[in-house]
């Protein structure tokens, strides 16, 4: 089957069409069935802690709980319902909408191949308890969550930045963090290696990929057409018309001293010695 052809002339020049009234489709939330494994899981959980909200999304059980209950909830599901694997955990930035983060734990029951997602909402300055004692895979996931989102984790054995350098400021995966970095990020390597006083010498980063520097014609030259540095562009054109070229010369052309050229003519001996 061939893909239908769409004309691609001048796609770069056109502005992207964005519908201002487009709303991202929500995945349907279905009620939890009265019977089955998920119903038993939910019963076991609600006996131990408060369940704020529970529904089925794309065939998976999603449970919202209070962030203070996260250890209790995961311990119940792990020890009583055999959800023994934490396949993923992280946080989602909702700082602008709700002033906090949604932390989620994706757990898997290896016997029934059923998955549950536990979600809880933490405020920006609120800390969450580490689930590292229950699931060892939470170790690095929580460090990453702290590093990139800035969600504090209590009682983590080694809460250190995982991806960014140790002396980094800010949490880059927050939606408020600029993609090109804040001032600290833009000067990070200069400040660290040369010190702040070198900022004037080195200058700011060039973040504009389409920038054209007039002096590039002086700093760079076509191979074999090099002219003295600082030649103004008018003279450059004149030199080109005159046919001034600086040919690329190789070592071999002039003959390498100490190294003889290969003698193409075979040596013929008149008689055997």
């Amino acid at each position: 089957m061939m893909r239908p052809y769409t004309p691609k002339d001048n796609v770069q020049a056109k502005a992207y069409y964005t519908d201002r009234f487009w709303v991202a489709p929500r995945i349907a939330e279905e009620p939890v069935p009265k019977e089955g494994i998920y119903a038993e899981d939910l019963d076991a959980l609600s006996a131990k802690c408060k369940v704020l909200k529970a529904y089925i999304q794309r065939g998976q059980l999603v449970i919202h709980i209070d962030p203070k209950d996260n250890i209790t909830a995961l311990k119940t599901l792990k020890e009583e319902r055999w959800y023994e694997m934490l396949s993923e955990m992280s946080a989602v930035d909702f700082l602008a909408e709700r002033g906090g983060f949604e932390v989620f734990y994706q757990i898997l029951n290896l016997n029934t191949a059923q998955r549950i997602r536990i979600k809880c909402f933490v405020d920006e300055n609120e800390a969450i308890e580490s689930v590292n004692p229950l699931y060892r895979s939470a170790d690095w996931a929580e460090r990453e969550m702290w590093d990139l989102m800035g969600v504090k984790v209590n009682n983590h054995p080694y809460l250190k930045r995982l991806i960014m350098p140790d002396d980094w400021e800010g949490h880059p995966l927050r939606k408020t963090y600029p993609l090109e970095g804040d001032e600290f990020a833009q000067w990070y390597e200069v400040d660290k290696i040369f010190g702040k006083e070198a900022r004037d010498i080195i200058g700011p980063e060039n973040r504009d990929p389409a920038r054209i520097d007039r002096y590039d014609t002086e700093r760079f030259a076509r191979l074999g057409h090099e002219v003295p540095r600082g030649t103004p562009p008018e003279e450059l054109k004149k030199l080109e018309e005159e046919g001034v070229v600086t040919p690329v010369r190789y070592q071999e052309e002039e003959g390498v001293f100490l190294v003889k050229d290969l003698n193409e003519e075979p040596k013929v001996l008149d008689k055997r010695k």
Binding site: M164, P172, Y177, P178, L179, E180, G181, D182, A185, Q186, E189, V190, I193, I202, E205, N206, R207, P209
Partner: peptide, 18 residues
């Protein structure tokens, strides 16, 4: 040379800065 396509907070925009 210039940071290339990685116009981000984590990439040095050209090794000639270092």
């Amino acid at each position: 040379n210039t940071g290339g396509m990685f116009n981000t907070y984590a990439t040095v925009q050209g090794v000639d800065r270092i």
